[in-house]
Amino acid sequence: MSQPTPRFALNHMICPRLSVSELIEGAAQLGLKAVELRNDVGGNSIQTLDQAKEAGRLARERGIEILSINALYPFNIWNDERAEQAGNLAQLVDACGGHGLVLCPLVDADHGASEHEKRAGLKDALAALDRILGRYDLQGFVEPLGFPISSLRTKQEAVDAIRELGMTHRFSLVHDTFHHAGAGEQALFPESTGLVHISGVEDESINFDTMLDEHRLLVGPRDRLDSVGQVQQLLAAGYDQYISFEPFAPAVCNLDDPFTAIQGSMDEIRRKLTA
């Protein structure tokens, strides 16, 4: 059986200095069909309905899908403020013609909730988000963060909560190759995954418990996360959605020509997948 072909996309974190139009144009020039927008890239963030509508117009002109706005944080600490944020972001995703909203959990060493309280908070948040996202028929992309101080570290926890609530129609996982390695999780859950974020780590002076966003590069030949191996397993198990580049390292985000580097990373991933 031949190896399924990966479908790549660009997360705006690849270069926060790019405008939305430059991001979309760069994706089109690379032959890609999808991007993720963000609400945390300074002046290039999607924050108003007018900005969202214009992003949607530009994307449609270039034949580009908008996968998500990234992100509602911390989605699992539910209160009136979070409900308002979620409602506003859902409106923006709808206005740009996006598919869904990325949901990131609290990362805080001082968060003193018990495991029972964390599970209850997660389910309360998902139930509330189902109502909000359902107004626009949007997907919630739940992204467990593998840092040791994360309040939702594994995909297993997220899958259990989603299934217990009977909300698999509304929520799917983000499999992030960085956070998967950081959490030390083995299970992949391809059938529950709606989006993949891919990056690489090459610094040999750190371990998976101490690596941070600033270490996240484009995937190259010295990647320590086995990101390509993760993707290969997901594809072989039937995953057929997008694989979105999401490096955070300043060495990538500040490149004058990020698209040449992205092309090189895509070539490296494809080479390894077919080796």
Rank of each mutant, 00 (worst) to 15 (best):
P4E: 03
P4K: 04
R7L: 14
H12F: 06
E25C: 08
A27N: 05
A27F: 04
L32Q: 03
I46L: 05
R57C: 04
E65R: 11
I66F: 01
L67A: 07
E81L: 12
Q85K: 13
N88V: 14
A90C: 10
A90K: 03
Q91A: 12
V93T: 02
G97E: 05
V102I: 12
V107Q: 02
H111W: 15
E115I: 05
K123V: 10
D130E: 15
I132L: 03
R135L: 13
E143V: 09
F147A: 14
K155E: 05
D160L: 15
I162L: 04
I162R: 08
E164C: 06
H169E: 14
V174P: 03
H175G: 01
H175S: 13
D176L: 08
L188C: 09
T193D: 02
L195F: 03
E202I: 05
S205K: 09
I206H: 10
F208M: 04
M211T: 07
R216H: 02
L218K: 02
V228H: 07
L235D: 02
L235K: 01
A236T: 08
A236F: 04
Y242Q: 11
I243W: 05
V252K: 04
N254L: 15
F259S: 00
F259N: 02
I262A: 04
D267V: 14
K272Y: 11
